[in-house]
Design a protein around this nucleic acid. Structure first.
Length: 255
DNA sequence: ATGGTCGCGGAGCGA
């Protein structure tokens, strides 16, 4: 089975990229973040025509996540118990075969010290609690999505520029580590010790054209899911072309 | 280069 994750930065704006990509790559599951629409605005017909079942957790204008699957999806859950109301729609989970898939769009945090930064750390602590329960209920679990957190300097093209800044600060990494303490492993890093692999490049600074990116979109696997994992690949080519997302899709191959 | 880009929604916010 192949599970993909992609922050599309608006599913409606990104259909010209997402539809051909789905038709060509055909992952069994695609986890979407930042669909930026309400459930009834989601372009269902075009995606269903490719054979995908769709589960959405949307909101107006901002955030929003969805699960697309060629295989039957069961036990779909939206949001998190204890989640602050102001953070919006950021989590959707479902079971595909024997794999529990949790799709998360982590709060960005704006900048270190900002009120939204405190909200990010708090939101991650709620995610850590959710994962503890989810892993206990589903031993073969994958947590994926846009984490808006790097693990270390290998995930940053210019580590000195980003030192202690948003997406790279120690408190954020500690909050992510608390999520990982449910027993999760960063599957990409498990297979690839070398740095220089990124999943997001800033529009504002034309990061992609300048080769400046961060690795913030992850696949985190429970022990049983890690043992079944075979590869994680970043589809950098999908970041090219006309009006791309600022993120590339990432794919996990798991048995 | 204290600039520079996107998307939503129709001004300013969020990333």
């Amino acid at each position: 089975m192949r599970i993909a994750t992609w922050n599309v930065n608006s599913i409606r704006a990104r259909l010209p990229h997402v539809l051909p990509w789905l038709a060509r790559v055909r992952p069994d599951v695609l986890c979407l973040q930042e669909i930026k629409c309400q459930d009834e605005q989601f372009p269902r017909e075009e995606i269903e025509a490719l054979g995908y079942a769709i589960e959405t957790h949307g909101q107006k204008s901002y955030n929003g996540v969805a699960l697309l699957s060629l295989l039957p999806l069961s036990d779909v859950a939206r949001g998190m118990a204890g989640e602050p109301s102001e953070t919006g729609a950021r989590v959707i989970a479902g079971t595909v075969g024997d794999v529990r898939v949790v799709n998360a769009y982590v709060v960005n945090g704006q900048e270190v010290g900002h009120a939204k930064y405190a909200l990010k750390l708090g939101w991650l602590s709620v995610l850590a609690q959710l994962l503890r329960a989810e892993v206990a209920a589903h031993p073969k679990l994958v947590l994926t999505g846009d984490f808006n957190v790097t693990f270390d300097d290998r995930d940053i093209s210019e580590p000195e520029k980003w030192r202690d800044r948003i997406l790279c600060s120690t408190p954020e990494r500690e909050a992510l580590a608390a999520v990982m303490s449910a027993g999760l492993t960063d599957v990409f890093r498990h297979f690839e010790p070398a740095g220089g692999h990124y999943t997001w490049w800033d529009f504002y600074t034309r990061g992609f054209q300048r080769g400046q990116g961060l690795r913030i979109d992850h696949f985190l696997a429970s022990p049983a899911a890690l043992a079944a994992s075979r590869a994680v690949t970043i589809d950098v080519d999908a970041r090219r072309g006309e009006k791309p997302s600022d993120h590339a899709p990432v794919l996990l191959t798991i048995e």
